[in-house]
Nucleic acid binder design. Structure first.
Length: 516
RNA sequence: GCGGGUGUAGCUCAGUGGUAGAGCGUCAGCCUUCCAAGCUGAAUGUCGAGGGUUCAAAUCCCUUCGCCCGCUCCA
């Protein structure tokens, strides 16, 4: 790698040191899979969410036109973490959110239940001999085949799922020496359970949502009926989701509680593939625009055999995190979901979710279209905000031993929690007073988008270094010359270079660079 | 869930049975006219937690929790 491998330990240390990310409940020993944001992290994440909201909902795709030649239109919703339990039955999360696994008690291997195959005798009766389990395309396949042929002669292959669990006692696991080491299949349901009502019983069972998207589908009809939206249009939803990950890992990357920013874009089936490509490309461009430009970001189109049965295309925006390198980790999935979700909810809720499109259908005698009822197809760009924050921090984290401040965070000015800092070069000769005035002025102007810092303590070098670690892009310094000609120096975080500008131009300088 | 590693100040770590330490950071004062500079001083510790052995445990034993890595899995 050109810039050398970044150390995740160093990044995590900086995150804590500067107040970006803390372990949740740390003073109680921490809690696996949960992370809190400190002052700078909270602001950074808010800025990321805001950027998403602005560029997806308020001014979708920066005002550009979609494949239909018109401006992209999107509206927001905010739906609840707890929904009717049937929502998750309809969505498929209750049934198949995770695959059952079987464990081998002898080898401690874990296998996906539906991936294990078994050699059985063609005759069907194994007598007192074992069944030989194996994993396709693994060494166990040929090894077990030899044993099975020796035992039975003619063999055939059946999936483990077709065998009664009571027969597991006779199964020789793929890499085991003794028979009967496989546990019964265990269902891992990743959904958090909760109970509604103060006298909670099993009958009151509900779930914390595993994704925000379903809230959109469930309210699709209300949005169409009440807000004069016309297809094609999108509905955005952001918020917290929960998944009981088997293995929370890699800092905040796989957390059990995390925030998503999801858009469901509804369109006519005939235009869905074009919209899919449009969103896929825009979402990639968007991540680049906020600072993930470079070879660490890729758009990966799923292979045909990776696609869900209903999908005509899915791609992931993936970032090369230090812990995934040389591989990549998913930041966002852009999926063509067809009409799968609306159809599911239509069936389960017995509520008509079809859309009446007055611009389509045959022409009536008066020349107007008769209209067409259809279930819209849906394009789903679903981003992980915590993963986004982590990617921004990893990408921004830079180590350069030749600098006076060897560690710094190259955050895009639009995302940086502290937008600028104001320093008196020394805390005397009237400089603090001038600096405080500028600080107040800039705060007044920029508090909506981020913090403006003021610091007069210690040496100027330490103050620059602190701001470098916080990812603050610009520092204004009041010096002796300021008092004579009303100019200040502005220092660039990434280059350390300084320019001198009029003190009255500082605000405009930031406006030009913050993307506000 | 399994295996390996690890846990001492905000951070990085030293401390192998006998008074809890260092560097950096932080804070205060002095100094200082541009890059973690210098001087002086200060604060900060359930030694991850619980139990055991011992006259005495950060140190030995058991249990447990968190984090990191691998397996597995996955957005």
């Amino acid at each position: 790698m050109a810039e050398g491998a970044k150390s995740m330990d160093a990044i995590m240390a900086l995150c804590k040191r500067r107040g970006f990310i803390y372990q949740a409940s740390e003073i109680y020993g921490g809690i696996n899979g949960f992370w809190d944001y400190g002052p700078l992290g909270a602001q950074l994440k808010k800025n990321l969410r805001e950027a998403w909201w602005q560029d997806m909902i308020m001014n979708p795709c920066w005002g550009r036109k979609g494949p239909n030649g018109q401006r992209v239109r999107c509206v927001p919703v905010e739906t609840r973490i707890v929904q009717h339990p049937k929502v998750w039955e309809a969505s498929g999360h209750v049934g198949g959110f995770n695959d059952p696994m079987v464990d081998c008690k002898e080898t401690k291997q874990r296998y996906r239940y539906d991936h294990v195959s078994v050699y059985v005798p063609s005759s069907g009766d194994a007598g007192d001999k074992p069944f030989f389990a194996f994993m396709k395309d693994s060494p166990s396949e040929t090894k077990q085949l030899k044993k099975a042929e020796k035992a039975f002669g003619q063999v055939r292959t059946v999936p483990l799922t077709s065998m009664p669990v009571t027969d597991f006692a006779k199964v020789l696991a793929p890499d085991a020496e003794k028979v009967g080491s496989l546990t019964e299949p265990r269902q891992f349901n990743l959904m958090f359970k909760t109970y509604i009502g103060a006298t909670a019983s099993e009958d009151d069972k509900a779930y914390l949502r595993p994704e925000t998207a379903q809230g959109i589908f469930v309210q699709f009809k209300n949005v169409v009926d009440t807000t004069r939206v016309k297809i094609p249009f999108g509905i955005g939803n952001t918020g917290t989701s929960f998944r009981n990950e088997v293995t929370p890992r890699n800092f905040t990357f796989r957390s059990r509680e995390f925030d998503q920013a999801e858009l469901e874009f509804f369109c006519h089936p005939s235009e869905s593939v074009e919209w899919y490509k449009f969103w896929r490309d825009f979402r990639m461009e968007w991540w680049k625009s906020i600072g993930l430009a470079g070879e660490n970001l890729i758009l990966r189109e799923h292979e045909k055999d990776e696609l869900s049965h209903y999908s005509q295309g899915t791609s992931d925006v993936e970032y090369r995190f230090p812990f995934t390198a040389p591989g990549f980790g998913e930041l966002e999935g852009i999926a063509h979901r067809g009409d799968y979700d609306l159809k599911q909810h239509q069936e389960h809720s017995k509520t008509k979710l079809q859309y009446f499109d007055a611009t389509r259908g045959e022409l009536a005698p008066n020349g107007q279209p008769k209209g067409e009822w259809y279930l819209p197809h849906c394009i789903e760009p679903a981003a992980g905000l915590d993963r986004g924050v982590l990617a921004l921090i990893c990408e921004g984290y830079t180590k350069d031993e030749t600098r006076p401040s060897p560690e710094f965070l190259k955050l895009h000015p639009r995302l940086s929690p502290i937008k600028a800092a104001v320093f008196p070069l020394v805390a005397k000769d009237g400089m603090p007073e001038v600096a405080e005035k500028l600080h107040a002025e800039l705060t007044e102007k920029f508090w909506r988008v981020g913090m403006i810092d003021f610091d007069e303590k210690q040496s100027i070098g330490k103050r620059y270094a602190r701001m470098d670690e916080a990812g603050t892009p610009f520092c204004f310094t009041i010096d002796g010359q300021t008092l004579q000609d009303q100019t200040v120096t502005v220092r660039d975080r990434d280059t350390g270079k300084q320019d001198r500008i009029g003190i009255d131009k500082a605000g405009q300088f930031l406006v030009d660079r913050l993307g506000v």
